[in-house]
């Protein structure tokens, strides 16, 4: 276990920012901490980096205690690298001077290696002002990796970039972190980013990690209704359990999680679980369609409720068409007592 956070709490006066948060990360693993803005993600990183001291709890790096209420090992002695949101390059230094900042003199080979790794060999002597946002983030990543820190912290590193650049840079960052066998914590509010990039996703809410696991686990088995609606595009449909199935206004649905007979609650059906079968005598009607090319979100009025279905672009039914709505696959069911 490279990083271990135990019951970490931080209060600013009355305001509780982190509340007994627990998080572990293994060597070589990329962990994404996913949370809404203001959930305390950046604060968590600042605590790990040693810029803030916790109100209570402990942080261990490489099994060494680095932070508790009384003692905080100084940032420069922790072996933790950070990549801030806005890259924060040293504007008075060139790209290679930035990368070499944390290295002893004469580390030209390492600088060259990193320049190559992030694909900026031609920019070694440029000043940060002449770099694009994506290039600046690559330099910031290389600079953080250069001294081979035990742990890399990435604070929403892609949020300032446009969508296309973001996707490309994500791939690059993953590749570079793998190449360096770096252990990294990425905080983000972008679920697509967390799910596509990380080995492990941890969801931060109300100052604690409420669920963590592989991206597939997290997406397929949200532990509560809050996460279920936060991740992906879900419709909530009332239902109850009968003969091991969920009985809803959309028919019988197979539960994904363990349910017990007679439970009343809500089924969270993702838009990709719906299948729309064109049927002139169907009882549902397409009332809206947002076309994205590769797919489309189709709004359908069923006899009892409105649903949103994700449909293959070329096959998405037109507004006004009659359809039959099917639910494919199993969905998660949350008994009422849990979400009240």
């Amino acid at each position: 276990m490279l990083l271990q956070i135990k019951d970490l709490s931080l209060n600013y006066g009355e305001q509780v920012v982190l509340n007994k948060l627990n998080l572990d990360a293994n060597q070589g693993e990329l962990t994404a901490v996913l949370g809404a803005s203001g959930a305390g993600k950046s604060t968590l990183l600042r605590l790990i980096a040693g810029f803030e001291s916790p109100t209570s709890g402990e942080i261990f790096i490489d099994s060494k205690l680095v932070s508790n209420r009384k003692d905080v090992v100084a940032p420069e002695k922790r072996g933790v690298g950070i990549v801030p949101q806005d890259s924060a390059l040293f504007s008075h230094l060139t790209v290679s001077q930035n990368i070499g900042f944390g290295l002893p003199k004469g580390s030209d080979a390492r600088i060259k290696e990193l320049l190559n790794l992030v694909g900026l060999s031609d920019y070694a002597d440029r000043k940060p002002a002449s770099l694009s946002g994506g290039q600046a983030q690559r330099v910031a990543l290389a600079r953080a990796l250069a001294p081979r820190p035990k742990l890399i912290l990435l604070d929403e590193p892609f949020s300032a970039l446009d969508a296309e650049l973001r996707a490309r840079l994500r791939e690059d960052v993953r590749r570079v972190l793998r190449a360096e066998n770096a252990t990294a914590i990425l905080v983000t509010h972008d679920q697509e980013e967390a799910l596509s990039l990380a080995d492990k996703v941890a969801i931060l809410r109300d100052g604690k990690i409420i669920q963590s696991g592989s991206p597939t686990e997290i997406y397929n088995s949200p532990v509560d209704l809050g996460i279920a609606t936060f991740l992906g595009d879900s419709i909530l449909v009332d239902g109850h359990v009968e003969d091991g199935k969920i009985i809803t206004a959309l028919g019988k649905i197979t539960p994904l999680n363990t349910v017990s007979e007679g439970q009343v609650g809500v089924a969270a059906i993702r838009s990709e679980n719906f299948y729309l079968q064109p049927n002139p005598s169907g009882d549902s009607e397409v009332i809206g369609r947002v076309f994205f090319g590769h797919d489309a979100v189709v709004e359908v009025q069923t006899p009892k409720l409105k649903i949103r279905a994700r449909s293959n672009g070329p096959f998405a039914p037109e507004v006004g068409m009659k359809v039959t709505v099917w639910v494919r696959g199993a969905v998660n069911f949350y008994p009422s007592d849990k979400h009240n």
């Binding site: 810029f51 420069e76 950070i82 040293f90 504007s91 900042f101 944390g102 600079r143 250069a146």
Partner: peptide, 25 residues
């Protein structure tokens, strides 16, 4: 100010940060 924090994580003490990062900026 986050570039000053980055400099800390790269091994500089607070006084070195003043000389090597804050002053040049």
């Amino acid at each position: 100010a986050s570039s000053e924090e980055v400099a800390r994580t790269l091994g500089l003490t607070k006084w070195q940060v003043l000389l090597r990062v804050t002053w040049p900026q």
